[in-house]
């Protein structure tokens, strides 16, 4: 597509967000990340609403700010299935106009901070933001619980992790389903490989006096089906690890914002 409508729209959107971020920084605003992410989500929603298409489907809040990738609010249309350049261009301009002057947003944020600092007694409610380590622990428990699921006690880890995932407000319902079914995959793959590997073995136990000796013998090789199964399980394990990594990254980004 080149540097045409969508490219320029992205540039303008990113420049606008950078201007707001700089204005907030100049005012010493603490919640810069959260405010800029809110504005980014607003731009995405405004573009989607104005164009009636999945604009921004390739660029989430994490894509633009957490990873530093150039994917901007209008990037989704660059996939070829989105709205045309002119529509995105117009939508981005209109959304930026609606959001208003970066300096006014920074002034509002700085005014809020001032009000907060001068009237602390009015705000006694606890900060409900989830610490970043909580969702990370949840995913680690599901992953480790899955890897050790063959033992009795670690099942508790898996269950505890899944409960933590489902009560968390950091993930969407779809992401929670992914955490439930994809993150335990490495463990399931590992146990399947182990059980298949030991299934072909024949063991015999010989007792002589107080000594007991168990000897296991196998075919010593792996069939083509076994290789294919192992490869498939390896892919599933990688999918599980990738899902765990993505979920942790999103959770850390969202709890930091």
């Amino acid at each position: 597509m080149g540097i045409s409508g969508v490219g320029r729209a992205n540039e303008r959107a990113e420049r606008y967000l950078a201007d707001v971020d700089a204005a907030l920084a100049a005012r010493g605003v603490d919640d810069r990340g959260e405010i800029v992410d809110g504005l980014r989500e607003h731009l995405l929603a405004a573009i989607a609403s104005a164009t009636g298409a999945a604009a921004g489907s390739a660029a989430g809040p994490a894509a633009g700010s957490a990873t530093g990738t150039p994917a901007g609010p209008a990037a989704g249309s660059a996939t070829g299935s989105g709205p045309d350049d002119a529509a995105v261009d117009t939508a981005v301009d209109a959304a930026i106009r609606e959001l208003g002057d970066p300096l006014a947003i920074a002034a509002e944020a700085a005014g809020d901070q001032l009000a907060e600092r001068t009237a602390p007694a009015e705000r006694t409610a606890p900060d409900r933001r989830t610490p970043a380590w909580v969702p990370v622990l949840a995913i680690v428990l599901v992953l480790v619980g899955g890897l050790l699921v063959g033992f009795v006690v670690p099942v508790v880890l898996l269950v505890a992790g899944l409960v933590m995932v489902w009560v968390s407000r950091v993930w969407t319902p779809g992401e929670k389903v992914a955490a439930t079914f994809l993150v335990p995959l490495p463990g399931i793959a590992l146990w399947t490989v182990l059980s298949v590997a030991t299934a072909g073995q024949q063991c015999s136990t010989v007792t002589s006096g107080i000594d007991t000796q168990t000897t296991c013998t196998g075919s010593g090789g792996m069939s083509a089906g076994g290789v294919a199964l192992t490869a498939a399980l390896g892919v599933l394990a990688l999918v599980g690890l990738a899902a765990a990594w993505t979920l942790v990254r999103r959770a850390v980004h969202r709890t930091a914002a």
Binding site: D31, E34, I35, G38, H42, D101, I105, A109, D127, R129
Partner: peptide
């Protein structure tokens, strides 16, 4: 302006 909503929401959440 619509943009001034987000500092408010951040404050309310905090």
């Amino acid at each position: 302006s619509a943009g001034t909503l987000y500092p408010l929401l951040a404050r309310l959440r905090k």
